[in-house]
Nucleic acid binder design. Structure first.
Lengths: 176, 176
DNA sequence: ACCTGAACACCGTTCAAGT
DNA sequence: ACCTGAACACCGTTCAAGT
């Protein structure tokens, strides 16, 4: 299609577009090459293999989350904000959620998202010793719910998500 | 390997064993046939295709959950019981969780698991109108957490799961 | 340095032919 | 009725050869 010079950037962006549209399952190196108007093997000159390709587009997406900040205000509002921000991200890249949850940014606990989350939980009154584990639990619960939501299109429902967030906020409030 | 007559049952059981060991990704019709000591095409005489095969082994597993009952006692104990039972199931069939969560038994709301869950939530004091949605939220949250746990081997941790369950119980208690 | 065609080892699945 | 070999249309990836 585009007859420009092949770069890692255009490869990643095209791959992300294909994945967002039809899922990781439907992405093949050969289809991606066809979409780029290029020989399938040319891609290997810029990307090691398919795993590296998926890794690259996952990194592109998680980079967007890096600068999530929460405004001042009561901690439930802040937590709600984080949850809805997370959901917005997963709705535009729903087929990639599996990889996002498994990526370093989410497993490693020293990223910017974790720092903000810990700050919010601290102001909610969670004890310093339980901070990390509570943050982990919240990410796994919300991330997991979003994954189930993303997988089966039939149970994507705003009010169900809202109830989940409020239930978690109540749970946090009860533990302090 | 086994030189007996080929049946749907032995196909499903062998496939489940392979999936539990190496994951759905690693299962192929041809490998399954080799494991059965049979021509790859013989399988198609008993199973429509790979999708039907996965559907079949998922049904085998969800059938085990059908007769989950909770003994009398305080609702938090009952809810804890359900959660830990669910977790035990996913630990032995962790590669199948994606399919379990997407299966009819979990999306349809009239299965035996949903009935027990609703009973427990009713005795917790949840209003009749919110019963279905609260049950859905709990299954999605816990199922999702288990999925994240199953996917990345590194964050499988008993005390993290325990904290998640207690947090949800507190959340339910606060909403009544 | 970048691209490419042919080739290899895999897939799922169909179909005509065997017993 | 059950099984099978050959074949088709796909994969990811390697490698030698081209510009």
């Amino acid at each position: 299609m585009a007859e420009k010079r092949l770069t890692e950037d255009v490869i990643f962006r095209t791959a992300l577009r294909l994945v967002d549209a039809d899922g990781v399952e439907a992405l093949s190196m050969r289809k991606l090459a066809a979409e780029l108007g290029v020989n399938p093997m040319s891609i290997y000159h810029h990307v090691d293999n398919k795993a590296a390709l998926l890794d690259g587009i996952t990194r592109m997406v998680t980079a967007e989350v890096k600068d999530i900040t929460v405004s001042d205000g009561p901690w439930p509002d802040q937590l709600r904000r984080l949850a809805y921000e997370f959901r917005a991200l997963t709705l535009t890249h729903r087929h990639l959620l599996r990889y996002i949850l498994a990526s370093d940014d989410f497993t490693q606990r020293d990223g910017p998202m974790w720092r903000t989350l810990r700050t919010v939980l601290r102001s909610a009154g969670i004890a310093e010793a339980e901070l990390n584990q509570t943050a982990m639990v919240l990410v796994m619960l919300i991330g997991g719910l979003l994954h189930t939501e993303a997988e089966g299109a039939e149970h994507r429902d705003d009010s169900t998500f809202a109830l989940a967030v409020e239930l978690l906020i109540d749970g946090i409030a009860a533990r302090t």
